[in-house]
Design a protein around this nucleic acid. Structure first.
Lengths: 338, 338
DNA sequence: TTTTAAATTGGGAACGTTCACACTTCCACG
DNA sequence: CGTGGAAGTGTGAACGTTCCCAATTTAAAA
């Protein structure tokens, strides 16, 4: 390969255009108080030299990095994939870059990533998953904007954008009830902070509202992945009084449940109805297609970025603020309807 | 929030430790020629002040960013999710960061991202997907290391790590043949550069080797996603002479095909065998579970990072080099065996 | 015309590092 | 006891910007 040539700097532009460094800088940054004539000259010189400002120097001078870090627990989790896709799209439009921070739920890694804020390597951090308790993170708020996305912790002292999990579970459970189901089971998904708690409340609320009894045997906690769904099915299959419907805390759980049911010769939704959560692509790949709850990921991404930019531009605005989004019911074929 | 306090700089360490700036810098960078006594003093001061070097200043001085960009066409594509997970893991270990570049197959965006190299914003770029032809990208090689991962283009003049798609398709097709299948269909997947071409060659090679005729009607090109799989099934269902096995260029295609088959009352694999590609999680969520070809993503990530680091450290080593990995057959239940 | 304000322009200083160089000290060796 | 070289240390310069301030020009108001 060719030897990397010495970079073109602002001084080269100065020489070619015949104006001063200050003026060139003003042109680059679209500042006022530059005559049209010189502005044109500078632009031509920049064009001709294919000059691009050195970002490191700009960062050093400005203390702005035009970079935002996103902390997720696992990039390969499809939910985060979709969320990242959304965040990236919005962030790029505004001239920012996205730094990928994958924690695998390591508390230490999360802290290391948060330190990016202290060292001025990023302008802000989006916490899309949280491995530590807020107590252990809160100090970082002093070093730059943090926005939470996808989860709530009532203690959090920054803007949080997330789903109303209680309402989501309520809608789902209500959908069962409206279609004549009275014996409804609930899988809590992994009890990540208070997401599960909220969902269970929504589930119970819907039951109570319709005068249905809550049966502890039908509530499963810490169910995770397809394996978890299969396990739940095995439990259900062995019950004397079985539920006719299962609200599950994730599409994988639902798919696992359905798979186990079909494998045991059951018919879905005739013998048992199942509802997923998250509206992941898998839901349409299976038969019957999964009725599920959809998170408004696009909206979540948009608002997160908006709040982040606001926080970056006006450090005052970094206050506790919960933005709660509504879930959507996606009706497909895994729920027996009237 | 508290007002962001003025950052602690090397000068603060100088004052507290009572040595010179140069010595502090030497301690920070683990350079020799520092007495144990002063080294200790400096370390204590750093500890006490919780000092962290300003990365922007280091970058400006060093022209090293300790950041690597990864260009992918879509983060939400599960394959890239897995690959990113792997890349991130290895990169972090070496003290680098990962900048996420999502192109959505936009040629312009890809070019914009490649420009990060020119502006010294990253030390290197991993091209995990390629929206442009190599001709239009090659100039960027002059500005820093580029490594290709996940695809080959014979013209590419940098290290490339990828799957031997020809062999992968050969293995898959052979598996059908070894289990008594003689009428085997092929879905090419999206014809992304020469991936599809290689696969088709492997498919044809296996057939020829066993003296089987190639039937053009059974070769489907540009099939994509579950919808594509369904479409292929509809085609197959209407044939007078139907294949008994389908090799598909992606798990989604395979799942779509199976779904359509089951919906039409077919039995899989009794009535028709199906093989996927990529070994995505979906494959285990469906019934029958999908027999598929697995890409060695972990290995691919590891080697990619290794080549990238080599290229960064020794700019000479940036030459054309193809590293071809072997695929794995994952046997599950979607292929009728003898 | 004179005064005043605004627009335009140039150049020094600063951002926080690391590097190159110069200087001192120390020790080994003849 | 002088000499050479290595180890240890401090300081000025440089990396490439942007900001601030002062100087100059221009335009508007009186």
């Amino acid at each position: 390969m060719k030897i990397k040539t010495k970079a073109i700097t602002i001084e080269d532009v100065v020489r070619l255009s015949g104006v001063s460094r200050g003026t060139v800088s003003r042109v680059i940054n679209d500042h006022p108080h530059v005559s049209e004539e010189k502005r044109k000259k500078v632009k031509e010189a920049i064009e001709q030299l294919d000059y691009m400002p050195n970002v490191s120097a700009q960062r050093l001078r400005n203390i702005k990095t035009k970079t935002i870090a996103v902390i997720v627990s696992s990039i390969s989790n499809p939910f985060f994939g979709l969320l990242l896709e959304e965040l990236e799209k919005d962030v790029i439009k505004l001239g920012y870059q996205l730094l990928l921070c994958n924690t695998r739920n390591s508390k230490k890694k999360e802290i290391d990533f948060l330190r990016l804020l202290i060292t001025n390597q990023v302008d802000g951090i989006i916490l899309a998953s949280m491995a530590n308790y807020w107590e252990n993170i809160k100090e970082f708020v002093n070093y730059g904007p943090i926005v939470c996305c996808n989860q709530f912790d009532p203690k959090v002292e920054v803007p949080s954008i997330g789903l109303d999990h209680e309402e989501a579970a309520y809608i789902g459970t209500k959908h069962f009830i409206d279609n004549g189901h009275e014996k409804i089971a609930f899988c809590g998904g992994i009890s990540q902070f208070n997401i599960s708690v909220g969902r269970k409340q929504g589930y119970e609320k819907a039951l109570k509202e319709s005068g249905l009894k809550i049966n502890k045997d039908w509530i499963f906690d810490n169910v995770y992945g397809t394996a978890g769904g299969i396990e739940v099915f095995n439990n259900v299959a062995n019950m004397r009084v079985r539920p006719t419907a299962v609200f599950s805390g994730g599409d994988e759980i639902a798919v696992g449940f359905i798979k186990a049911a079909l494998d045991s010769g059951w018919k879905v939704p005739q013998d048992i109805s199942v509802m997923g959560f998250d509206n992941q692509p898998i839901g349409t790949f299976v038969s019957p297609e999964l009725t599920t709850i959809q998170q408004p990921i696009e909206q979540m991404g948009k608002i997160t970025i908006q709040k982040m930019i606001e926080s970056i531009n006006n450090i005052q605005s970094m206050r506790s603020e919960e933005i709660i989004l509504k879930a959507n019911l996606i009706e497909r074929n895994s729920v027996k309807t009237i």
